[in-house]
Design a protein around this nucleic acid. Sequence first.
DNA 1: TTGTAAGCGTTATCAA
DNA 2: TTGATAACGCTTACAA
Lengths: 334, 334
Amino acid sequence: MATIRDVARHVGVSPATVSRVINGVPGFSADTRERVEAAVAELGYEPDTLARGLRTMQSAVIGVLATAVSDALASQVMSGIESAARSRGYTVMLGRAGLGAEHAPSYLRSFKTYRAAGVVVISSAITGDMRRIAGARLPLMAVAIRNGDVFPSLAIDDEQAAYDGTRRLLELGHREIGLLAGDESSMLVNAPRERGYQHAMAEADAPTLVERGNSLYDSAPPALGRLLERAPRLSAVFALSDEMGAAAINELQRRGRRVPEDVSVLGFDNTRTSQHVHPALSTVAQPLERMGEQAVFGLLDGTWRSRIFEHRLIERGSTASAPSPAPSRKRNLP
Amino acid sequence: MATIRDVARHVGVSPATVSRVINGVPGFSADTRERVEAAVAELGYEPDTLARGLRTMQSAVIGVLATAVSDALASQVMSGIESAARSRGYTVMLGRAGLGAEHAPSYLRSFKTYRAAGVVVISSAITGDMRRIAGARLPLMAVAIRNGDVFPSLAIDDEQAAYDGTRRLLELGHREIGLLAGDESSMLVNAPRERGYQHAMAEADAPTLVERGNSLYDSAPPALGRLLERAPRLSAVFALSDEMGAAAINELQRRGRRVPEDVSVLGFDNTRTSQHVHPALSTVAQPLERMGEQAVFGLLDGTWRSRIFEHRLIERGSTASAPSPAPSRKRNLP
DNA sequence: TTGTAAGCGTTATCAA
DNA sequence: TTGATAACGCTTACAA
C-alpha cells in the first residue's frame, strides 16, 4: 500500500503538500494540485485512516448500539444510519447491547477508543452510566425512545400517537378495544403508549382492557387469549408493536374470527412485519429510517438536540368499522 | 483520556513495561504486574486502538458487506457475526453494498484502510474486482452463497436442499408443484435451487411449473397468480425465499384456498419471517447465525476455506398431504 | 526483569 | 506556495 511519502516522492514535493492537496487545505498551486492528484490515482493511494485518526484525534466512524441486531425496528433505523453515514464519508460500527444493555459499556469503551464521532442508541435508554463511560468527547443520541430531557433523542410522541390510534378505533365505532402492551423492561416507550390509550378510552367513557406481552410475536397469542377471555365480544385490538399485531391477526383468524369484519387490529411502528400479514396490518408509523438519518446528521453537525417526529396513522386492511352489534337476546324480548 | 505514559509514570516504570503487561508479553515480575494493573484500573486507562493499529498494522475490526441492512436474512447472519466478533474482542463495521454491489468497492477500501482483519460478504458474490481491491492483506469470505471454488464461502448445498424440499412435497403426494423462483440477479443462489427442483420433478415424472419473483414479499402475489393461471389445480407451492412463501400463504388464503388443506406452501431460508404467518411456514432452513459465526472464526483463524453446511427441513403448519383429487368428471362418466 | 529509542502514516506548526 | 519537523499513542528490537 502506497503511503503519502510515496506520492510525495513520485511528484517531487513534500508529504505536507500532498496532505494539503488531499484535504483541501489552502496552500498549493493549481499545477502541483494536478500533479499530486495524478500521482494519487496512479499509485492508488488511500490515506491511512488509523494514522490520520491518531493524528487528528478523531475518526470517521459512527457507533450504533442496538438491543438486538436482527430486530426489524433496529434494522430499519440502521438502514437510515448507514445511508446518512455513507453520504458523509463515515462508516458504521455495530454493537449489540443486549436486552439489559449489558454489553453497552464495553461497546461504548470500544467506540471511544476508536474515536468515533458519536453513537446512536436504538430504542433503549441512555443511562448515566453510559454517559459517564462515553465521556465528553463522545456524544450519544437515542432514537425511537425518549425520556423528557434526560437524554437527547429523536422520537415520536408515543402518548399522542397511541391516543390518536385509539381515537381512530373509537371513531370507527369500536368500544371494546383490547390493548396488547409490551413488558415492563421497555417502559420508556410502553408507559406513554398505554397512557395514550387510557386517555382516549376514558374520554370516550369506554372500558379499558390491557394484557401484556413482550413486544415479540410469540408473546401475543397467549396475551390475546387472555384478552378474549375477559372480553369475548371485543371488536378491536390495539397492539403496541407490529409483531404483536401480526400475531394477533393470525391468532384471531385461527380462532375463527375474521379480520377486520369481526375484529379490527391496529399495530405500532410500521416495520416491514406489518406488510407481511394478510390482511396487511394498519399501524401507527414512526419514520424510523429518517430518524436514523437525522441522528447521524445531528451527531456530526453538533446539534444533538432532542426532536419529536411526526407519527402517522397508516390504514391498511386490518381495520374497519365496528360490526353492528348482534341483537342481544334480552333486549329483544318484548 | 489517560495514555500509556500516564500509567507508566504513575507506577514508576517505563511505557514498554506497561505495554508488556497489557498485552501479556513475557518480561515482567508478578509484582510490577499487579502495580500496573492497579494503575490501569485507577486511571481508567484504555489502550488507544488507533495508535495500536497503526503500530501493529492491523486492527480488531471485522467488516461486513450486506446487500441491504434491513434484510431479514442478512440480519440473522449479522447476529452471528456480532456474537463471534465480540467473543474475540473484535468490533463489526457495517457496509451496505446495494443490490448491484455498487458500494462494495468503496466500503472495501474503507475496511482496508481501517486494517480490518477480514470481511464477510453476505449473500452476494465476491467478484474479481472486489478481490483485487481488497488485496492480499484483507481476506474475504462469502456467506449464504457459493460458486464452486471461485471464492471461499460458507453455504448450504442449495441444489440438494431444493431437491430435498421438492422430494418432501412429492412424498406428501403432491404432483402439481409450482416454483416461486427468485430473479436473475441472484442467480448464484437461485439457479442451483431451481435445478434441485427440476431434478426432483423430473425423477418423479411430474410437470414443472416455474414463475419468477424477486425474492421479496411483494413480488410473490403476481407470480403466484401466474402460477395459478397456468395450473389452477396445483396443490403445492415451493417458494425460494421465506418472504415469497409468506406472501404465497396470504395470497392463497385471500383467494379462498386453505393452507395447507388445499395447497401446501414451502419456504426457504428459515428467516424469522417464516414464523410470522399463519399457518407458520414450513421451510428449508439454513443455519444463518452459525454461518455468520463461523465466517468470522475462519477469517480470524486464517482457515478461510469453503465449507458446506447442513440444511434442514422444518415442517410447520403450511405443508400437508396432497388433497385427494376431486373426482374428475370425465373419468366418472360410465 | 526492565528501559531506551525508533518508527507506524498522518497532519499541524513554523519558518522559508 | 512550499518544506522540515514534531507529535499523536503505541509496540518492539535492542541494550542494559
